[in-house]
């Protein structure tokens, strides 16, 4: 029951992130979607993977995305 709710919230967040025009805002929304996946890992009793998921998805890939956005356009359309 709680898994379905969390997954629907995640799909809603990703749908919002696709339609945003400012790319830095979209990166932040995608990072929060990865935090929801880490929450699902915690609910399935796997704390090691939850720590790794938060560190990689919300830390490192967001930084690399921001570096890539800096070298190209910031506001699409």
């Amino acid at each position: 029951m709680i898994f379905e709710l969390l997954l629907i919230v995640m799909i809603g967040l990703i749908a919002v992130a696709i339609n945003l025009k400012d790319l830095v805002h979209a990166v932040i929304v995608l990072a929060s979607a990865d935090v929801i996946i880490a929450l699902i890992f915690l609910l399935l009793a796997a704390p090691d993977i939850a720590i790794t998921q938060v560190a990689i998805a919300s830390g490192l890939t967001s930084l690399i995305f921001i570096v890539a956005i800096r070298k190209s356009i910031r506001r699409e359309e």
Binding site: P47, D48, I51, A55, I56, G59, L60, L63, V67
Partner: peptide, 21 residues
């Protein structure tokens, strides 16, 4: 405690990457 080699390495790399950027 939960953790180990891989999350620790990723967190240290995030600290360095912040300085680099």
């Amino acid at each position: 405690t939960p953790g180990g080699g891989f999350p620790g390495g990723v967190i240290i790399a995030t600290g360095f990457a912040l300085l680099i950027i």
